[in-house]
Design a protein around this nucleic acid. Structure first.
Lengths: 274, 274
DNA sequence: CGTGTTATTGACCAACATCAAACTTAGTGG
DNA sequence: CCACTAAGTTTGATGTTGGTCAATAACACG
């Protein structure tokens, strides 16, 4: 699998520690890590590989022994449906572990593709188990990571089920912009999203033509501005309004530092009064 | 909260042990439990309550101290979107823990409603933490439970994004029928789904009128038969075909006993050859 | 029997899909 | 540096799926 065309393995020290750094940054977005945790991550073995654009790095129904970590570029999970069409299920940024659950589920129910050329690292499940076993806060971070993924999927279900084209795309842009900003990948209101309109269509459940027209509509209303794949949100308040966007489902620590990721305090738990 | 109208607390011994039994049955569907695990569950404190039909038992943005366990009836997670419309995100059967992740995420991103009158049990987070702490296989079962939930959400994203009305409803029926059968709640090809056509519409992202017409179409093609809320799959092969249904995303042990839920064996993990 | 909820129907409409062509852009090799 | 190519975007014309509205029919229940 690692030898498939378009992907070449190479693992210089710098690439490995960049991978570690990305993972740490991603986990810190949603959870609290101790210095020890970070040291543990930095000591985790992994293999870095380059994947060309539009490659499949994990295939539906695969049985996995490693998790992939996006180091650079953009990846996405997708399913193919009967008539050959495709639905993109999620987008993944540097630091993401899109198939973390491959550790606990025997087969994977989607494929993972790359968009631009990507740097991807592979971490053996055994190494991740050691990591979780070594630290409760780290185990907690991985668990939270999966739960935030689920939360995002629920928002996408609502997006696809009950929002019109403009709101779907607007909502996606709001989400991507926030996540990229949180990761330090976006500057202010501008962000680079290397998706073609066909990809956007497969993400939002629309046709490519309609995506094009809807983007024009959003531009005409002064909500966004696009130059190629570089998009800028021109009127965030209004875009969030028409897209019905509420970022709480992302559970970003930065968005609500008071709440997120406190270590569990069992003392607080009890039956509610009744 | 427990005192809201339409829900009354009562916890006779029989109801409590029924709740335990339902939870055990549900977890055994996707994971392996030891006898000890079952004993631990059976010793877990919980409060059983009756919820009238169409009640909200958990509200979006709540901060929870207990998880709810569906004991009897049908519950669903949903989100309300801007214009007052509603998207149902998942259906929950007896034994389900729809807000298990309320333990790790500080606020819940959806509401939970009941459909017919339900029996619901509430388990304090502290009790669940004890349970997970007491047994690795149990902790594993809870983790798998969440992951299967995520897997199902991904399938729903694909369903809403890229399938037409007939396939969406057909797919839902295939899923519900399989899950109910696995839980012993359905007999052969018949299952009782206490959803109105309005509810089905909110589940499938369609309008109620179109759900009605699509059901008629499915009946006319001899794929299903409905008498009120009792539905029967008349031609499973064909229904699965037009719905593009592949049950592997449900990760049911019964469907593939060879694979599911083996305890993790780290020895198998290693870098793939390259 | 009423009364409220749910299912069904018909008429009409809108959002979005499809098809096909033209145009733009970014590479790429000479 | 330019022509050539391939990929992506934009446009127009037209079709279809599914939405909306409103009325009627079928139940379910007290």
């Amino acid at each position: 699998m690692l030898d498939s065309p378009g992907r070449s393995a190479f693992t210089p020290v710098a690439a490995v520690s960049q991978a570690h750094a990305r993972l740490i940054r991603q986990l810190e977005l949603i959870a609290f890590l101790t210095e020890d945790d970070k040291a543990h991550i930095a000591a985790t073995p992994l293999q870095v590989a380059s994947a060309a654009a539009s490659r499949e790095i994990v295939r539906q129904h695969d049985r996995l022994t490693t998790c992939c970590l996006i180091v650079d570029g953009l990846a996405y999970r997708y399913k193919s449906v009967a008539d050959g069409r495709r639905q993109i299920l999620s987008l993944h940024y540097p630091g993401d572990l899109p198939d973390l659950h491959g550790m606990d589920l025997e087969r994977i129910d989607y494929s993972i593709g790359t968009l631009p050329a990507c740097q991807v690292a592979f971490i053996p499940h055994a190494a991740l188990r050691l990591l979780s076993g070594a630290s409760p806060t780290l185990a907690n971070a991985f668990r939270r990571y999966e739960l935030v993924d689920g939360s995002t999927l629920r928002e996408w279900v609502a997006n696809l089920g009950r929002r019109d084209a403009a709101a779907r795309i607007g909502h996606l842009f709001c989400e991507v912009s926030l996540k990229m900003r949180a990761l330090g990948l976006a500057d202010g209101e501008a962000f680079r999203l290397p998706l073609t309109q066909v990809d956007l269509a497969d993400t939002t459940g629309l046709s490519a033509v309609h995506v094009n027209r809807t983007l024009q509509y959003l531009r005409a209303r002064g909500l966004i501005e696009s130059h190629g794949q570089l998009h800028t949100i021109r009127n965030r308040a209004e875009l969030e309004r028409i897209s019905d966007f509420d970022p709480s489902y992302l559970h970003l620590r930065t968005a609500r530092p008071d709440l997120a990721a406190r270590p569990a305090s069992p003392a607080e738990d009890s039956f509610p009064a009744c």
